[in-house]
Amino acid sequence: MGEVIVITSGKGGVGKTTTTANVGMGLAMLGKKVVMIDTDIGLRNLDVVLGLENRIVYNLVDVVEGKCRLKQALIKHKKFPDLCLLPSAQTRDKDAVNPEQMVALVEELREEYDYVLLDCPAGIEQGFKNAVAGADRALVVTTPEVSAIRDADRIVGLLEAGEMKKIDLVINRLRMDMVKRGDMLKVEDVCDILSIHLIGVVPDDEQIVVATNNGEPLVGGSSLAGQAYYNICKRILGEEVPFMDLEGKKGLMAKFLDLFKK
């Protein structure tokens, strides 16, 4: 019986889809059978981030409406055969699917997969309700910005009201240089304000953009963000992984420049 995790944030553009792609791939690297569902009907993105956009024949709405079998719509990842994507429909809108249908779908998938990841659309309307309906657990993604945190707080409130069993926080796009200057909220501050369990901190990393351009998530790679996502995956599996020192690892060039600063 697999676990169903919804990745949500409230605010758009904080990295839900990137997080879903990286966590999904990371869990697959760790040997789990994973299926990712893009629930953002009308604005699908997860397929592009994963580089699978050219394989889509059927989508979530087709499955729900019985136009195809579930197996037909699942797209296997190029490198990890145990990683599947159920893409969303680009040409429909959110009310093409209702929460009961999502629950039925998720129940079917969890029979076979270890993890079902639901990439939630921004906002708190129908799409959010659909995504949250079948989930056991939520990853709330936020950035250290007032607007994102405020929305995250609202989401946490809604999830708690909906009796979500487990809610974890992912802080994305943290910039240590700005934190040091005092111009960005600290990790502790964000945790303090939202008061939910922190499962990972992902530093702002140019490599994310590069990875998205290439359609290849960077989890597990040598970049800081890639390591951070890998750690999140391990923590999802219940491993105790210490939070990494985001300042400690600097590029060669930065180290070189440091010599001159002193």
């Binding site: 007032v146 934190v179 005092g182 111009d183 600290k186 304000i193």
Partner: peptide, 23 residues
């Protein structure tokens, strides 16, 4: 000589925003 960092300002503002949001 620098004034309070904007991070702290953000924190203070958020605390109040959220409390009134929640209530």
């Amino acid at each position: 000589f620098r004034k309070k960092g904007s991070g702290d300002v953000a924190k203070d503002r958020l605390k109040f925003i959220l409390v009134s949001d929640r209530s």
